[in-house]
Simulated assay, not measured.
Amino acid sequence: MISERLLTLRKQAGLSQQQVADAVGVTRQTVSNWELGQGAPALDRAAALARLYGVSIDDLANEEVGLVSSAGERPRRDLHVLHGLVGSAVQIELGADDLCFIPRATVLAVGDGWLRIESVEKTATFGSPKTGERRTVKLIDLADITGIAVIADEG
């Protein structure tokens, strides 16, 4: 839900509700309501929030885009090396408890605090021997990445 994303993104940015409200031109109560799922930002406010958090509007609103973050204030980093990985296939090691390793992903974009990736996940239906695949897009908090390696082309 967008409410959970807004809360996670605000915490990751280390901002208070009042700071977010001031940045996007609404009241603190409005930000609180958005985070509680009692309404959602209009398109102009969503665009301002996306800019504030360094993500796209699609990443902010699309429930199919996963959000991987242990949430908390993060120092800003020099990201020029990561920008060079856009379009590359990589393996990602995460320090977050729920995920430890993403064996293959394509780096789609790098933001101030986020790595946007696309990966393929195996799917299975209970009781069926067949497996399938589905493409997923995730935003990964850079602070949760403990290692990243480029995968050589298989050709």
Rank of each mutant, 00 (worst) to 15 (best):
M1N: 07
R5N: 12
K11P: 02
A13E: 12
S16A: 14
Q17L: 08
A23H: 05
G25T: 01
T30M: 14
V31L: 10
N33W: 04
W34I: 06
E35Q: 11
E35G: 01
L36S: 08
G37F: 03
G37D: 11
G39T: 00
G39I: 00
G39Q: 06
P41R: 10
P41I: 14
A42Q: 12
A42M: 14
L43C: 10
D44R: 11
D44V: 11
R45S: 14
R45I: 12
A47V: 13
A50W: 02
L52M: 04
G54D: 05
G54I: 05
G54L: 06
V55T: 01
V55G: 06
D58K: 05
D58W: 00
D59S: 12
D59R: 00
L60F: 12
L60E: 06
E64K: 02
E64W: 00
V65E: 07
V65I: 15
V65G: 09
V68S: 13
S70L: 05
R77Y: 00
R77P: 03
H80R: 03
V81M: 12
V81N: 05
L85R: 01
G87Y: 01
G87I: 09
G87D: 13
A96V: 07
F101L: 15
T106H: 01
T106R: 03
A109N: 06
G113D: 13
G113W: 01
S119M: 07
T123Q: 15
F126S: 11
G127C: 14
P129L: 05
P129W: 00
G132A: 03
E133P: 00
R134I: 14
R135G: 13
V137Y: 13
V137R: 12
V137L: 13
V137M: 12
K138A: 15
D141R: 00
D141E: 05
D144E: 08
D144W: 02
I145G: 08
T146V: 14
G147K: 15
I148A: 00
G155K: 15
